[in-house]
Structure formats: structure tokens, C-alpha cells
Design a binder for these strands. Structure first.
Length: 552
RNA sequence: GCGGGCGUAGCUCAAUUGGCAGAGCGCCAGCCUUCCAAGCUGGCUGUUGUGGGUUCGAGUCCCAUCGCCCGCUCCA
């Protein structure tokens, strides 16, 4: 499939336009047109219906409870400190050009070994310490820096202060003499020093670059530092910070999930591939909270449920690729993550549609720490079950008796969370790619969008075969009946074949045609998009037939 | 962010060395038309991405800018 043809069709028929196109567009932003908004709304509604209102039965056949929220896009900036988005990505970063590893610039230390006479190590370390606080080079250091014997970078992340001043054993072994070490955080190191990768030791590091991908804005009319806020880079945090609110207001018990559909914003370095990497995009996210001991069961459940959902909505199985992330890919807090990927036409590599992540208790713990609010869950049923055996009636009293921590955590704990996080725009794009097809009908080529009927922007077209003999009147009456319930389209313009092809191109699954026989016996034809086969049905049965066919 | 290519009607594309901006498709109106882009008649669509410059004259040459495509990079 040719991506250019799809982009052209999307523009021509009103699925997707470049944002603010008459001003030349804006890189990374897109608008959905009349058909695109129907398609994307259908996708979001299908997700909400199938995941929130009616999720599949749980691993043991139990009811699964999911509740919805719709949170503000702008949140208290402290949220993003707790989530790690500010600290992790406000700092200048450097990348290894060879092994592609990324490091915070100030965590990479360049070290020089110097054969300096009459300079004690203690002196040097003192100067280095001074450098770290004042960034002013002392004479001794300047002298030593002028003729370094070797420069080795260090990655200081996760090491204590003492270790920062020590090279690894293998690195030290490389020298028979006792070297004197000089260390600088990378941004302060002399420009002449080679900047080699701490991980592979071979590749050069890029210049430090600022990598905060969050959109910044100001709350209130005054644009000063105290009013800085961010457009959310993900919808998940709105769920986490409302965990207690939902728990306290909705009479739910663990396990349960909270779902949200909403816009998110990321300053992608290089948006590309049509809408795939947009700077403004929509997410469909669930945070499913459960007992730590049951979390793997739920992780596997959501991984399977989510893959099945895409398949059911018409994504061909061989292009859909669930992929368990390797240990080296996982975020440090994650126990497991499965990317559900789709092989888009614009790439040889499958691209992520959704990530199903086991995030442990990381997020709630972070928010508990940063907000100072208790975000733990008390499992009343478990306590009621066990309290007699433990010899207590009050949980508090029992805790005072200093039972083992693991025991307490059976009843009071920070829930673990499974996060199926899907991209609404990415799935919409996958649906468009998947639907695009060219075939031949009676020797004539046609373009047909083979949308699942549930997702199709227009469900049916109503067409008078010709504009006479009362056909337009009957057709209009049917159209007016159907449009109360379905998105339908009326077309009396041009030859019937042309009208069928127009509907094929926008993926309308069915066409009702009123012909000469309608006046005689009250039947119309129902034409199927995918094979062009027609059947006759009573005009009065049209709505029922459509309803039946659209239902999953 | 770097390197290369590109930008002409709604879409796909032409336009000689710098010399009157065009075609097909689509779209609209009408005629015709009883089932798969038929036919006939008429019609609409452009500050050639944008802004400067060179020139008697710029779609064409130069500069800038925006956007798109390809390759790197990036993608928590």
C-alpha cells in the first residue's frame, strides 16, 4: 500500500487535513475533517463501550469494573515533578552517537589521569569539589588539565559521592603507575577533552541538548516563573492523582480500573509519518489497580484483551505484532511491558499502537511522597477474614504489635497498576492503512476503504436508482427515517455506478437503492461494499437490517 | 537537530534557454439514464507555499522562511 495514496485520499475526501493549512500548516499538528471525526469518534466510542462499560470477563470469569474520568489538561506542575517528567527531561542530555545510549549531561563525568609531580590526590579532589560548587578552575587543575594522559568518562548516576571520584577497577588496571584523577561534570569539562561514551567507551557524545518534551504555558495573565504550567504529556497522571477521589466516591473495591480519553501534548523532536508522531494527540488510557500479588494475572489479562480488541475491529493479524519488551528496554520501575505494534506502510519496523505496562506501585508511591497524602488501600475483606486467626479485632492495634511488614501489606498496601495506554490517532491511522484497498469490479479499478462497519464514518447511503417515477420521494423518506439513528448519506447525483464508487472510497459498508420494483412490492436492494453483492429486502426492514449488521 | 530532494487547480501532474499558466480526473448545473466511475451540453477552480531579490520579463535563476518526502537523529 502506498502511503501517498492514502494521504491524498484523506485530504480529498475529508478525513484528515494539515492543521491551519491556509497558513502553510504547522509541523506535527493535524485536523480531522467531516469523515475523519466520525471515524475517530467511532473508535473512541468503541473503546469506551468495550473497555469501560462492558469489559470482557476477568481472568477467573469475574466482572471487571472500570470507571471513567475526564481530567483537566493543565495540572498542578508538581504532578510532573512526581511523575518524573520535569526532572527527567528538563535537564540537558547527551547521546552516544554509536550505541545510542542517553545520559544526563551533568551525570557524565570526564576524568583525566595526570602524571603530576608534587600534587597530592587530596589537593586535587579538593579543587574538584570547589569546581563543582563554583565552576572556577584553580591553577593546579588548569596545569594538570593542560596535559592529560588519558580521558575516561564516567557515568555518575546512581553512585554516591565517593564513587564519583573513583574509576572502575578495570579502568585503573589500565595504568601501571598510580594516576592522579581529575573529574569534571561534562558541561564544565575543558572543551579539548574527548567526550567518549561511558557505556560503550567508543562513541562520541553529542553536545548537551535540552530535552524537555513538555509544552510549557502560563496560568494567569502574568508570565512569570511562578505561573509556569505544562500541557499534560500523558493522560495517566490525571488518573493517578484522582485515585483516592474515585475510590472514596464510587463504592468500588480492588481490583478496579480508571479510564480516560483525552488530548496529550509532546514536543516531539521530529514529527513525521503523517499523523503517527503528532505533537498533539489523543490517548485512551486505563490504569487498572490491583493487589500486588494478583498483578501478573491482570497484566496478562490486559495484554490479551487489548490485542484481541484490535483484531476484532479489523486489524489483520499478521500486521499486528504484540511484542514483549526486553529487560533493557523497560523503565526502571516496570516489571513488564508489552508493546502492541502495527506494521505501517511507511516503515519496515512495526510501530507502537499501545503499550500495556506493569508499572508496579511506582506512580502512586511517587504521588504519595510528593503530595504527602496517603494513597494506600485497605483490604477490609481480607482483614475481616483473617483477624480472628491473628487474634485482633482492630487493624491499628495489630499494627502496633509490630507484625512483619509483609504481613501488614497483605491488608494495607499501595496498589500495583497495569496500564494499557493506547493512541487514538495512531489506531485511527492504522485503521485507515488497514482499510485501504484497490480491486477490480467488472474490469474497472476501484478504491475501497474496507472499514469494519462499526467504525465506518457513514453506515449506509440511500440512493434512488433514477430521479423519476417517485423514486426520489421514497428514497428521501427512507433517508429521513434512517438518519434519526445512523450516520447515513443521501445521493441522487450521477449514474448509480458512480455513486456506489463514491461510497466505496469513503468506506460506506452498505447502500440502499430504491428502484422500479420498490413501487410494486415495497422492496429495495441492499448492496454490500466489499463484494458488491446485492440482496432485496423490504424497505420497512432497512433499519433493522442495518442495526443488525453494524453490531459487532 | 543534520544532509539530500520537493512545493503549479480539490487530486495526479505538464509548461522548451527566463517569454500569453495548461491537461486529465474530480466537482457543480442541466439533459439522458432501470444497478457498478457510460454519454452529451455548459460551468467553477490558481497572488505557481510565503516574503524578498536579479531581470524588459520569473512557475523557471538567487536569498530567506514555512511545509512535505527520503536518510541519519529522536521517539520518556
Amino acid at each position: 500500500m502506498d502511503m501517498d495514496k492514502l494521504v491524498s485520499l484523506c485530504k480529498r475526501r475529508g478525513f484528515i487535513f494539515p492543521s491551519s493549512e491556509i497558513y502553510g500548516g504547522l509541523n506535527g499538528f493535524w485536523d480531522y475533517g467531516p469523515l475523519g471525526v466520525e471515524l475517530k469518534n467511532n473508535i473512541k466510542q468503541a473503546w469506551w463501550q468495550d473497555m469501560v462499560r462492558n469489559p470482557p470477563p476477568g481472568p477467573d470469569g469475574e466482572e471487571v469494573v472500570i470507571l471513567g474520568v475526564d481530567c483537566a489538561i493543565i495540572m498542578n506542575p508538581r504532578v510532573w515533578e512526581a511523575s518524573g517528567h520535569v526532572s527527567g527531561f528538563a535537564d540537558p542530555m547527551v547521546d552516544c552517537k554509536k550505541c545510542r545510549k542517553r545520559f544526563r549531561a551533568d551525570k557524565v563525568w570526564l576524568a583525566a589521569y595526570v602524571d603530576a609531580e608534587g600534587v597530592s590526590e587530596a589537593d586535587l579532589l579538593a579543587v574538584v569539589e570547589q569546581l563543582r560548587t563554583s565552576a572556577t578552575a584553580a591553577g593546579t587543575v588548569s596545569q594538570a588539565v593542560a596535559s592529560p594522559k588519558l580521558v575516561v568518562p564516567l557515568e555518575a548516576d546512581g553512585r554516591d559521592e565517593a564513587e564519583r571520584h573513583t574509576l572502575s577497577k578495570t579502568q585503573q588496571k589500565a595504568f601501571k603507575h598510580k594516576p592522579i584523577r581529575l573529574l569534571f561534570p561534562l558541561p564544565q569539562a575543558p572543551a579539548s577533552w574527548p567526550r567518549k561514551c561511558p557505556a560503550c567507551g567508543e562513541g562520541d557524545l553529542t553536545e548537551p541538548r535540552s530535552f524537555n518534551l513538555m509544552f510549557k504555558t502560563f496560568v494567569g495573565a502574568l508570565e512569570d516563573a511562578s505561573s509556569v504550567a505544562y500541557l499534560r504529556p500523558e493522560t495517566a497522571q490525571g488518573i493517578f492523582v484522582n485515585f483516592k477521589n474515585v475510590l472514596d466516591s464510587s463504592r468500588v473495591k480492588l481490583p478496579f480500573g480508571i479510564a480516560q480519553i483525552g488530548k496529550a501534548f509532546r514536543n516531539e523532536i521530529n514529527p513525521r509519518n503523517f499523523t503517527f508522531r503528532s505533537r498533539e494527540f489523543e490517548q485512551m488510557e486505563i490504569e487498572f489497580f490491583c493487589h500486588p500479588g494478583e498483578s501478573m494475572k491482570w497484566y496478562r489479562y490486559w495484554r490479551d484483551v487489548r490485542k484481541e480488541w484490535y483484531t476484532r475491529l479489523g486489524i489483520r493479524s499478521e500486521r499486528l505484532r504484540p511484542r514483549e519488551q526486553g529487560k533493557d528496554e523497560l523503565a526502571h520501575y516496570s516489571i513488564g511491558t508489552t508493546d502492541i505494534e502495527y506494521l505501517f506502510p511507511f516503515s519496515n519496523e512495526p510501530q507502537e499502537l499501545e503499550g500495556v505496562a506493569h508499572r508496579g506501585c511506582f506512580d502512586l508511591s511517587q504521588h504519595q511522597q510528593f503530595s504527602g497524602k496517603d494513597l494506600s488501600y485497605f483490604d477490609e475483606a481480607a482483614w475481616e477474614r483473617d483477624k480472628a486467626a491473628l487474634g485482633f479485632t482492630s487493624f491499628k492495634e495489630w499494627v502496633k504489635s509490630n507484625p512483619p511488614k509483609e504481613q501488614v501489606e497483605k491488608y494495607q498496601f499501595i496498589p500495583h497498576v497495569i496500564e494499557p495506554s493506547a493512541g487514538a490517532d495512531r489506531f485511527t491511522l492504522a485503521v485507515l492503512c488497514e482499510a485501504y484497498d484497490e480491486d477490480e469490479i467488472g474490469g474497472e479499478k476501484r478504491v475501497v476503504m474496507r472499514f469494519h462497519p462499526r467504525l465506518a464514518p457513514i453506515k449506509a447511503a440511500v440512493l434512488p436508482l433514477v430521479n423519476k417515477d417517485g423514486m426520489p420521494e421514497r428514497a428521501l423518506a427512507l433517508y429521513r427515517e434512517l438518519k434519526r439513528e445512523f450516520p447515513v448519506f443521501y445521493d441522487d447525483s450521477g449514474a448509480i455506478g458512480r455513486r456506489y464508487r463514491r461510497q466505496d472510497e469513503i468506506g460506506t459498508p452498505y447502500c440502499f437503492t430504491i428502484d422500479g420494483q420498490t413501487a410494486e412490492d415495497g422492496t429495495i436492494t441492499l448492496r454490500n461494499r466489499d463484494d458488491c453483492v446485492q440482496i432485496r429486502i423490504p424497505i420497512a426492514a432497512a433499519a433493522d437490517e442495518l442495526r443488525k449488521r453494524i453490531r459487532d
